[in-house]
């Protein structure tokens, strides 16, 4: 081969088409925005029904997680996500999908060794960082005297 590794890299990068951002970004914006709109709708409903602020936040999260899980189980989430990209990945629906998808997929290896062992393979890092950072910020808050 006459090309150096650098020339080879340059050649295949030139031949590899980039992701179609002009299509992907508006799709992510529209679908992601729609999911947020759904969340807002649930929130307004809860508040108008007289629910407290903190309980409302929980209901909103739970309903969107349920929706993500349901759509994953119905094999629809993957189709929407293929169109929406980050639009479904970034909201909490993406988190639900990342747990439910392996849980369904690895059911063939049994509920314990399949579903339970594998269900956090994708979401694991999110949980690890999420929980650690909440502990860290909690300690910081306590040290700074912010905790009542």
């Amino acid at each position: 081969m006459k090309l150096s590794k650098e020339q080879y890299k340059e050649a295949y990068e030139k031949l590899s088409p980039p992701s179609p951002s002009l299509r992907n970004v508006p799709a992510a914006f529209a679908v992601g925005g729609f999911i947020c709109l759904l969340g807002q709708l649930v929130r307004e409903l809860c508040l108008s029904a007289g629910l407290e602020e903190s309980a409302t936040a929980t209901v909103v999260s739970c309903s969107l997680i349920f929706l993500g899980a349901l759509l994953t189980a119905l094999k629809l989430f993957e189709k929407i996500a293929k169109f929406a990209g980050a639009g479904t990945l970034v909201p909490i629906t993406g988190f639900a999908n990342s747990i439910v998808a392996p849980a369904i997929e690895f059911k063939t290896e049994g509920y314990i060794l399949g579903t339970c062992v594998k269900m956090f393979t994708i979401a694991g890092p999110v949980l690890a960082f999420g929980i650690s950072s909440s502990v860290l910020y909690g300690v910081l808050l306590w040290l700074l005297g912010g905790a009542a």
Binding site: T72, A81, G85
Partner: peptide, 17 residues
């Protein structure tokens, strides 16, 4: 897919290459 990449129902976009 399940050995090398993601579960089938995982929602993601594949790159054009």
């Amino acid at each position: 897919e399940r050995q090398y990449r993601y579960p089938l129902e995982y929602g993601g976009q594949r790159q054009p290459s």
